[in-house]
């Protein structure tokens, strides 16, 4: 029963997607499949082409080369990085969730319960905290009953606690709704500590798979080596050394000032 999945079994099939802008290659022969109930985290340094790839996955742009295929019946829910509300625009959460789409009141109520924003429905959008706003954006993405959720660094502007809560909510929705998730993340620490599939992009797909195999990939190390090293520096065994060093430094600084 382990027959290869054919192209039509995937929600999204990307084959040799190439994007060239002003003579510069942004994406080079990227191939990627998103199957039912996949959870893929896309990582890559700034300028790696992550957002461009997302825009093509959403079919907002037509490819320079290669192709992007959507399975018929595919519905994508999209959560952008952030939304900045101009204070001159009066907009409550409820109005925002119903503008340009047709959700009923009861659908809205059950969605709001799922994403824990019921108490916010009558608040102005401009008054929300970063975490609340991201949950509202997530709610809007879920309103179209998507089978694929695409999130572009959804927790970038949240504090550590808020990030954790948001990712937990995504996990719960992924399990309860049985949908597929493709998420861009900058947060290596969280990504590498989970067991989800990771795709590392740097103009082309450098490596993909489980975090521990990706972490050993030479290309991953050459791109993220420094960042990973910084992450490792947080762990306790190196802390004592750092502390000593800091102490020394302060001591010197103090004497310098006194003399």
């Amino acid at each position: 029963m382990s027959a290869e999945l054919s192209a039509t079994d995937y929600l999204v099939t990307v084959r040799d997607l190439t994007v060239v802008k002003q003579g510069q290659t942004i994406l080079d022969a990227v191939s990627l499949d998103i199957a039912k109930h996949d959870f893929i985290t896309l990582i890559g340094p700034n300028g790696a082409g992550k957002t461009v790839l997302l825009r093509h996955l959403l079919k907002l742009e037509s490819p320079y080369g290669g192709r992007v295929h959507h399975q018929s019946g595919l519905k994508i829910g999209y959560v952008p990085q952030r939304v900045t509300i101009d204070p001159s625009l009066p907009m409550t959460v409820q109005r925002f969730l119903t503008v340009n789409n047709d959700v009923t009141r009861s659908q809205l109520d059950s969605l709001a319960t799922e994403t824990k924003i019921s108490h916010l429905l009558n608040s102005p959008l401009a008054d929300l905290s970063g975490g609340e706003l991201q949950r509202v954006l997530l709610t809007r993405a879920l309103a179209g009953k998507p089978n694929l959720l695409i999130l572009d660094e959804p927790a970038q502007n949240l504090d550590v606690n808020g990030q954790l809560q948001f990712y937990t909510m995504i996990d719960e929705i992924y399990e309860s709704r049985k949908l597929s998730v493709l998420m861009v993340s900058h947060d290596l620490h969280l990504v590498m500590s989970s067991t989800r599939k990771v795709v590392c992009l740097f103009r082309h797909i450098c490596c993909s798979g489980a975090p521990e195999s990706v972490a050993r990939d030479p290309e991953f190390i050459s791109i993220f080596g420094d960042d990973m090293a910084k992450l490792m520096a947080v762990y306790p065994h190196s802390h004592a050394h750092d502390h000593d060093h800091d102490h020394d430094h302060h001591h010197h600084a103090a004497t310098d000032e006194e003399s």
């Binding site: 907002l60 999209y78 952008p80 939304v83 907009m91 503008v99 340009n100 959008l125």
Partner: peptide, 19 residues
């Protein structure tokens, strides 16, 4: 109106939702 309002709230979102 609906499309214009969504676009004014967030151009990204409106674009992604087909406006």
């Amino acid at each position: 109106w609906p499309g214009l309002i969504l676009m004014t709230t967030s151009e990204d979102l409106a674009h992604a939702e087909g406006v």
